[in-house]
């Protein structure tokens, strides 16, 4: 029996929303470390950039609050008034999961359900430590969900959840690098200049890449290496290269199971070929911002192509 289009859409979006919730959790965590816990607090600039990375700067400005930890952390986690908060992402994830419950294992469903319940009756994040605790719990549940997905049968349902997660992850990483890079290297400064250790560590923390960086690069923290790691090194699961590869693999596995192959596969493969050819120094010379902007646009086009290929309603 072929899967219902609505089921396919719900699974794909379940994957996207869980990934997004997880990313925002990491972003909040890294920003707290940068601002509240570092020796030289980065202050409002750090929180402004977190808002920009999560596409919520305009929505936050509308609240009239100053961009300080107390307000932004709450805004990005518990504030249900805008779609960019963790609670809203989890709510959407849970709704999608409920609609396709028969396609999920009980373990996968309970992970989503528990993550959502963490928020259900909470009004405030509390101070930095409480927020970090909350964020840690969310990460635990999303990891639990990811694990449960891996233990599910490798069928269309699993593949679609993972496809959603891969497409979302690609967007998140690209946006993170784009915003942070601009902030840290205003026009005119060279990539090899003196770096703000704390700031660059924040980027690595957000994508869980601190250890990976130490393994792969011996020369200490350098912006061009960070770019290389996040854009081109497929060993790092959250790098653009890894997401691009994973998307191709998932689509071809889906094609094998469903017989559906088309525009989305072609776009994904073309993107992979381009990414494999691109070298980090060339990307930086050619304009990193333009490169990432194009990447984000293409990722959105791929998302639409997937929706058409699997006839999402």
């Amino acid at each position: 029996m072929m899967m219902l289009s609505r089921t396919a859409a719900a699974l794909y979006w379940l994957g996207r929303y869980v990934e997004r919730a997880d990313f925002i959790a990491r972003l909040v965590e890294a920003t707290i470390r940068l601002d509240a816990l570092s020796a030289r607090p980065a202050g409002e600039a750090a929180w402004q950039s977190a808002l920009a990375v999560s596409y919520t700067d305009e929505a936050f400005a509308a609240t009239g609050h100053p961009a300080v930890q107390a307000h932004v952390a709450r805004f990005l986690t518990l504030d249900a008034s805008h779609p960019g908060s963790i609670i809203r992402c989890l709510e959407m994830a849970r709704n999608n999961a409920r609609a396709v419950r028969t396609a999920l294992t009980r373990e996968a469903w309970t992970a989503i359900n528990r993550a959502w319940w963490l928020f259900a009756n909470r009004a405030s994040t509390g101070g930095a430590t409480e927020t970090l605790n909350l964020v840690e719990q969310i990460k635990g549940e999303t990891r639990g969900f990811e694990g449960a997905t891996h233990r599910m049968m490798r069928n269309e349902a699993t593949l679609l959840i993972q496809l959603g997660a891969a497409v979302e992850r690609a967007d998140n990483t690209a946006r993170l690098v784009d915003v942070k890079y601009h902030l840290l290297l205003p026009a005119g400064e060279s990539v090899g200049g003196a770096v703000d250790r704390d700031q660059w560590t924040t980027i690595l923390q957000t994508v869980s890449a601190v250890t990976a960086y130490r393994w792969l690069y011996s020369e200490g923290l350098r912006p061009d290496n960070v770019i290389d790691l996040l854009v081109s090194r497929s060993e790092l699961p959250r790098s653009l290269a890894a997401c691009v590869e994973e998307t191709v693999t998932l689509l071809s596995q889906l094609a094998k199971r469903t017989g559906l192959q088309g525009e989305a596969d072609r776009m994904a493969r073309a993107r992979l070929a381009r990414c494999q050819k691109a070298r980090t120094p060339d990307i930086i010379v050619g304009g990193l911002h333009e490169y990432l902007e194009t990447f984000i646009t293409e990722n959105a086009l791929l998302d639409s192509a997937i929706a058409r290929q699997f006839r999402f309603l």
């Binding site: 899967m3 289009s5 006839r311 309603l313």
Partner: peptide, 9 residues
């Protein structure tokens, strides 16, 4: 019919 990923059934 129902709408599936492979078309109408």
């Amino acid at each position: 019919y129902m709408e599936t990923i492979a078309g109408r059934v």
